[in-house]
Amino acid sequence: MREFIVEADGGSRGNPGPAGYGSVVIDAATGETLAEAAEYIGVATNNVAEYRGLVAGLRAAHELDPEARVHVRMDSKLVVEQMSGRWKIKHPDMKPLAAEAGAVFPVDRVTYEWIPRERNKRADSLANRAMDDGGAAASRSRARTTAEADVRAAGNVAAPSPGWAPPDMGAPATFVLLRHGETPLTPQKRFSGSGGTDPALSSVGEDQVARAAAALAARGTIQHILASPLTRTRQTAAAAADLLGLDVTIEEGLRETDFGAWEGLTFGEVRERYPDDLTAWLGDPEVPPTGGGESFAATATRIAATRDKLIAAYAGRTVLLVTHVTPIKTFVQLALGAPPEALFRMELSAASLSTVAYYADGNASVRLFNDTSHLR
C-alpha cells in the first residue's frame, strides 16, 4: 500500500478577507512531490481556507491512488486536533468542510500531525501565491474600505501613510484584544494594576467572559491565545481556551500598569490624598503614580516591545490577547499614532473586544474598539 504525505495550508488577508489555500502531495518513500494544488477562494477566514487546503490535498492524493494511506501535516492546530477527533467542531462553517475532508479516504487510513509553520513552507507559499494572483484587486478594495472606516471611527484622524496594504505585504498579524471581565473593584472604578491585590473575577465577570468566549468561538478566527499573568486575565483566557480548544500562553508584557500607592483607591480618593502627584501624572506621561508605579511612557515602551515581538512571532495569524485597560488603550493609541493624552479619551468596558491588524511594512489598522455587543 502506497503512503502519501499531504502538506496543506490556507490564509486570509483580513480574516475574513481575500483568501487562498495551497496543498502538496509527497511520496512518503521517496520524498518526491507528486501533485500540487492552489486556489484563490474569495473572502473567507483563515480556518476556512485551511480546511479547503486540506480537502484539496486529500482529493489530489485520492486521484493518485484511492487505496493509499495518507499522513497529513499542517501548521493549523485547530484543523489537526479537530480532524483527529480530539477537539469538537462547533463552528457552522467548519462542520461541512470537516465532513468533506473526512469522506475522501476511510478514517483509518488518514493520520494527522501538527508541524511548525516554518516546516510547512511549500503549502504556505502556494497559498500566498494563490492570494497574490487571484486576490490582488479584492485585497486592495477591501483594505481601502477598512482603512476609510478606521479613519472615520477614529474621528477622522489622518494617517501619515495609506491604511491599506498591497497584496505583497502578506497577511497581517491580527491581534484581538480582550479586556478581562469584572472583578469586585471594577464597578467601583478603583485603580487595579499589577501592584495591587490581584483580584479574581466576580460572578458578573465570570458571566461576561463566558459570553465573550462564545462570541469568539462563533467567529472561528482565533488561532492562538496569550494572556497577562494576572489572575483575572488568566481566568478570562481560560474561558476562551475551553471553547476554542486552544492552549494559553502567558505573556508578561501584557500585564496592567503598576499604579503604585494608588492601587485599590478610587480616582476621588487619589485626588484627595495625592492632589499634586495626580495633577502631574495627568499632565505628563513620563510621571509615574505615587510610590514607584509605572508611568504611561514606560507602559508604552513595554507594550511597543511586546507588540513587535508578537508581530514577528505571529505574522499572518489571528491571536487573542487577553489583557487590561491600559495595555489595550496603548495598543490602539500607538496604532493610530495618537498622542499620549488619547488614553484619557477612550472608554473601555469589561470583557470588551478590540482588534488591531499589523502589516509587514509597519502599517497598522484599527478594526474594532470596545465592542460589547456579545454582552447584551
Rank of each mutant, 00 (worst) to 15 (best):
Y358S: 05
L353A: 11
L353Y: 06
T330Q: 14
Y358V: 03
K329C: 02
L343P: 08
L336H: 10
F331E: 11
G362Y: 06
Y359D: 12
T330W: 04
E347G: 12
A335I: 01
K329W: 01
Y358H: 14
Y358E: 05
A364K: 10
G362P: 04
N363W: 13
G337F: 02
R345V: 12
K329L: 04
L336T: 02
G337I: 06
E341Y: 09
L336I: 07
L336C: 04
A357R: 07
S349F: 01
A360N: 10
E341D: 15
Q333I: 11
A335M: 04
L348S: 10
F344D: 09
A335T: 01
G337A: 10
Y359M: 09
F331S: 11
A338L: 05
Q333K: 14
L343Y: 08
T330P: 12
S365W: 14
L343S: 09
L334K: 05
E341S: 13
G337S: 09
S349D: 07
E341H: 11
F344P: 05
A364W: 04
Q333W: 08
A342L: 08
T326Q: 14
F331C: 12
V356F: 13
A357C: 05
T326H: 12
S354P: 06
G337K: 05
R367K: 12
L334W: 03
V332E: 01
A338I: 02
G362A: 04
A360D: 13
F344T: 13
L348C: 08
Y358F: 15
A357G: 04
T355G: 10
T355V: 15
F331T: 10
A357I: 05
M346H: 02
P340A: 12
S365Y: 12
P340G: 08
Q333V: 14
S349L: 00
S349N: 07
L334I: 14
L353S: 07
A350D: 10
K329N: 02
V356D: 09
L353C: 13
L343E: 08
A338F: 00
S354F: 00
I328S: 01
I328D: 01
L343T: 05
G362T: 03
V332Q: 00
P340S: 11
Q333Y: 06
S349W: 00
E347M: 13
M346P: 02
E347F: 15
I328K: 02
P327S: 10
L334F: 06
Y358T: 02
A335L: 02
S352Q: 08
S352N: 06
Y359V: 06
T326C: 13
A335Y: 01
R367E: 15
A342S: 14
T355Y: 09
N363E: 12
Y358K: 03
T330K: 11
S354G: 08
L334D: 14
P339C: 02
L336P: 03
V366C: 00
